[in-house]
Design a protein around this nucleic acid. Structure first.
Lengths: 133, 133
DNA sequence: AGCATGCTTTACGTTTACGTCAACGTCAAG
DNA sequence: CTTGACGTTGACGTAAACGTAAAGCATGCT
């Protein structure tokens, strides 16, 4: 027998709770077209696909991307094959995003090194203070 | 003899040009207290220290930090030794920033992996198209 | 039936990070 | 001495990313 077939749909409140955002935030993402939940009458019904996209949006936000750029990125994930021109364009987009991400990573690593220096100085100063209180 | 003793001060226009920002941006950073150039009369005179801080600000921006957080970060760099409590607090701040940066790096690396997947699918689709044009 | 709960839309408010005039000072060159 | 070329201070504008009421359905419990 298969898994108990848990509905695998969510209300806006459930998703908001789970990801620690407000319902307003989720609606905002829908207004921008980043997610498009099913409508049952007037009420929103979120599927696994919407959950995934929400998770990707939040990851993009943690990285620091603006929402519009996040859309172009996550839209790449479920892009339908399409024609050759489309695919080539997509490859160019990927290259551009990759360059951006690698720059960010380099900046982060440099900052981590700098923080390491500050910490070292800090600990040295502390030891000096302990010797001459 | 020493180096030709190049003034090692800059005008706002020179710094803006060099770093590819507008003078308005630099003034904005000054308003927020991220840099505090010398004043010769009414006019701003930027020293090496200001240049360095500007570079750090822009790096922070590339990473995606808000300006207020950037200030707390770069203020850590030229924090005066001070007393033990200060130093301990500074160490805690460093730990927090480090955790944040490492989270961002992890998100970036996951996104890079995801983009790699998309790219692979993309190239597969392209090859398929070339076999059946 | 009545009321509380949860979802919905509408719409104005807020914060961040500057952009964009406007209006004025200043200093060297013509 | 006037004309640029830069510099300065307001001060209002704007785009992004939501916050925050306000007010209306729908439903289910009591």
């Amino acid at each position: 027998m298969t898994t108990p077939e848990r509905a695998s749909t969510w209300t806006i409140a459930e998703l908001a709770e789970e990801y620690g955002v407000t319902h307003r935030t989720i609606r905002h993402y829908e207004e921008l077209g980043l997610i498009s939940p099913e409508r049952r009458g007037t009420v929103r019904v979120f599927h696994r696909r919407d959950r995934t996209r929400l998770a990707l949006i939040l990851r993009g936000k943690r990285i620091g991307f603006p929402l519009e750029e996040i859309r172009t990125i996550i839209d790449m994930y479920d892009e339908t094959p399409g024609e050759a021109g489309q695919l080539t364009y997509l490859l160019a987009q990927i290259a551009a995003r990759r360059a951006d991400l690698e720059q960010r990573r380099a900046d982060i690593e440099q900052t981590l090194r700098d923080l390491g220096d500050v910490e070292a100085r800090c600990r040295t100063d502390l030891r000096a203070l302990r010797r001459t209180p």
